[in-house]
Design a protein around this nucleic acid. Sequence first.
RNA 1: GGCCCCUUCGUCUAGCGGUUAGGAUAUCUGGUUCUCAUCCAGAAGAUCGCGGGUUCGAAUCCCGCAGGGGUCACCA
Length: 511
Amino acid sequence: MKYDEKVSEPLTPHGGKSFGGATGSAGRQAETAKKVRTRFAPSPTGYQHVGGIRTALFDWLLARQNKGKFVLRFEDTDKKREVAGADKHLIKTLRELGLEYDEGPDIGGPFAPYRQSERLKSYQEWGQKLIQMSRAYADPYTPDEVQTFREQAKAGKVPFLFRNHRPKNPPQWEPGRPLRFKSEPKAYKWKDEVMGQMHAGPEAIDDFILIKSDGYPTYNFAHIVDDAEMEISHIIRGQEFLASVPNYLNLYETLGLKPPILATVPHILGPDGNKKLSKRDGAKDVLDYIRDGFLPDALINFIASLGWNDGTEQEVFSRADLIKKFRLGDVGHSGAKFDEKRLLWLNGHYIRQQSPESLFEISENFWPKSAAGAKEAYKKSVLGLVQERLKFLAELPELTSFFFSEPGIKTVRSLFNEPVDKQLQKIEASEYPGLLQATLTELKASDFSEEDIGRRLNGLLESLPSKPGILFAAVRIAVTGSQSSPQLFGTLQVLGKQKVLARIKQAIEAL
RNA sequence: GGCCCCUUCGUCUAGCGGUUAGGAUAUCUGGUUCUCAUCCAGAAGAUCGCGGGUUCGAAUCCCGCAGGGGUCACCA
């Protein structure tokens, strides 16, 4: 019976399932997976940066594209590195990004539990199976002894292979001792959906640890057992695992398991140098981007385009587009540098595409404190003015605070007294009050529609010696306390007659 | 050191034997008779890592080399 034909019987190392021996070439892949089941399997040791999320995204895309299932599994087998709360944080990250999973630790599923620490029985059983087959043995050495072997290898400039020290008569396996795989070194050829045809010689294969002395399995063992039991069809992972694939193939073969389709994605590189993006070098938590007001769709689009491209000149991909067009084979083979500037552009693009309604919704938590009591209609008008200049939503306070609180009189005064504004520099400081006074008089008679404000200010220019740039700069500073703002007439209209007149008056007095 | 992967404008990339090596972003310039932003137009920017082949013709195929990266854990 072939692995992918199994219908209902649970896969276990014994009973109900025959292992029919090795499949010959363990590298043979399932050409057509009947059911696509992908998994994202992080260890809860912290947050995820764009590199980790990218594999999750590819997994998710593949599952959605094929109407399959996307599974979340926690690989919490290293108790020393585990970080409390990291699991919830990861779940939140996936949720916020809209990468919903169909089975997972918190929502369960047909192959529960989805936490490796709760699946120890499975690993024990599969380990026993290997022992019975004489394909696993207890490691008799102390960590120090193994370390010595390792150092000898290093000194001799040869790769360290534990199997060179394989004991002739290993002791009985018992708790407290590591269990090692007894490998059968040989050459492998296999296909990687991203990297293409791969090969490795027997030197790549070693007796790796299956179960650690603390009773927890290693990643190398646990992921193979779990992927088989959970009927995972595709494994997408970073290139740090590429060198281990021959070991995995050897184990799959020994267990009579057909390997899932393998896909290796290159690392995402940090902005400087060519090093793999890492938390150590300040790689940001993807959830922090969400908190800064980067839109999930923009992040998804951006992360997908890091290394993936459909061969066209399209740059902006909706989620539906990605689901339709994503192909593992179109993922590049080289690492891509993470350039935040590009993300900034893309996010701005997505913000500009928002309808007024949806922009209002997603902006909800980003307003300045002073906007707390403001009316919805007013906020929407403000958004209409700043939409095209927002790069991410956390910029909202600095762009809009003057709509909700008075600009500091000190700021206004210094902008007039030491004008950095090129237009203002063209006239004498003594002329400012006159300009503002004339504006005040003119606007008092306005109905404060955008059109009327425009008409009146432009009319004012005809009776004044001032150039448009100078008058408008003066009014802008007086009213907003800043030398740049959204377009002036609209800004004045939204602010309203009362506030505008009061601020101009105040500015005149301050001069 | 062994094994493996990678190498096109600053950055993300298209390209799969014949192209003025294309797009996007970033940068700069001009325009949209108010700033900033947006938008539009334009400029600059890649001797396709290097050296050999194969070919009438190579970024594209082959072989070397160099540089970068990964791995050789009781981490994943």
